[in-house]
Computed example of a mutant assay.
Amino acid sequence: MSKNTGFYEELPRIARFEALTDPASYTPIPDDWMIATADIVGSTELITDGKYKLVNMIGAAVISAHINASGGQAFPYVFGGDGATLAVDPARRAESARILGVLKRWADEEFGVSLRIAQVSVADVRAAGFDVSVARYQASGEIDYAMFSGGGVSWAEAKMKAGENALPAAPAGAVPDLEGLSCRWSNAAAKNGSILSVVVRPVPGRSGAEFDRVTHEIVQLAQRLSRSGHPLPPEGPGLQFPPPGLNLEAHVSRGKASLFRRRLELVVGNLIAWVFFKAGLKTGDFEPAHYKAMVSTNADFRKFDDGLKMTLDCDAETQRQIRAVLETAQADGILRFGLVEQDAAMITCFVPSIHQDDHIHLVDGASGGYARAAAQMKSKTG
């Protein structure tokens, strides 16, 4: 086994998000690791058709399937809205390729959605003139999220979209292990103006210091917002019965079981959960108010992914300031950006156990935030 297998678990956790604008916060990933990428073909069209939850759920499935197979070993991943990127050590290369193949087959058979999947070694990324470095941002006492820099992740994604390094789909009927993946919470309405999805990427070949300076300024503007622009209320999101994502969750969680039976199981389970949350009933070590608050505390609403991505509850003046900074930097050839306004934020969750605080909550704009912002950014450059 590679001496680098425990590389990620040994990295320090960084508690201050603004520190992630500093290149010194990142550590190069070992050459023998693999970058695994996945994204939905035609996600913009699916979003236009109103299938925001489906797009987010398939993107989150890439992460949850890998977590379920990890045996508790931490690894770096980042949620992109319509896909995900992961770094895996050499001992897990084959398993990751298998999982991605299963997800590709499942997305096609269950939803009629085409999923691109690929793997490339970090050594190959560096041979192409890019790097892959990672940091661990401590979102709460129980959860941290990976941040990537160096341009290598973006290069790997571009190669995947060009058809390179592609992996095959698994045989027909393959089903991923998505235990714990759900979308039961209601969307969180904006409280301070609008939910702003921000995607910022550096222009290749320009000084990294220039980009770091601009992203630091954007992060500082966001920090001035109430709760740094956190889009979920501190007491947690709302819950209704039946939840808006129940049918989608039935598809995701049914495995090879009957869809009708799984819907029925979810209706009963969600009704019980709704009663407990509505009445604030405690059972054993489960306390509904605490759990809801941890949903907010653990939320992944801002990240560095070879650039900056944020989902912010943003007032009009701060939005104006953010746009002005980004437009100036874009005119100077430093970066490209996309900004999308929405009325609410959406949450996709991975909950290994309701009795622990290490549940994961991936946030995006409720009208296709990150994917729409990235498409907007692409349209500006042709």
Score class of each variant (00 low, 15 high):
F7Y: 12
Y8M: 05
Y8P: 00
E10S: 14
R16E: 06
T21I: 05
P23S: 09
S43K: 10
A60K: 12
I67G: 00
S70Y: 15
G71D: 12
G72W: 06
F79T: 00
G81F: 10
V88R: 03
D89Y: 05
R92P: 00
E95R: 15
E95G: 06
R98D: 10
W106E: 05
E110D: 03
S114G: 05
A118R: 01
S121L: 04
D124V: 14
A128P: 01
S140A: 12
E142P: 00
D144I: 15
Y145W: 10
A146E: 00
M147R: 01
V153A: 04
A156D: 06
K159Y: 12
A162D: 09
A166R: 15
P176W: 12
E179N: 15
N187R: 06
N187D: 12
V200G: 08
R201M: 15
V203K: 14
P204S: 14
G205H: 13
E210W: 01
D212K: 05
R213N: 13
I218T: 00
I218W: 01
V219I: 14
V219T: 07
Q220I: 02
G229Q: 14
L232W: 03
P233Q: 11
P234T: 14
E249A: 15
K256C: 02
A257P: 00
F260A: 11
R261G: 01
E265M: 10
V267T: 02
V267D: 00
A273F: 04
Y291L: 01
K292F: 11
K303I: 09
K309Q: 11
L312I: 11
T318P: 09
V325E: 03
A329C: 03
G333Q: 07
G338D: 02
L339A: 02
L339I: 02
Q342N: 10
V351Y: 09
P352G: 05
I354T: 06
L362V: 12
D364C: 04
G365T: 08
G365Q: 15
A366R: 15
G368L: 14
Y370F: 15
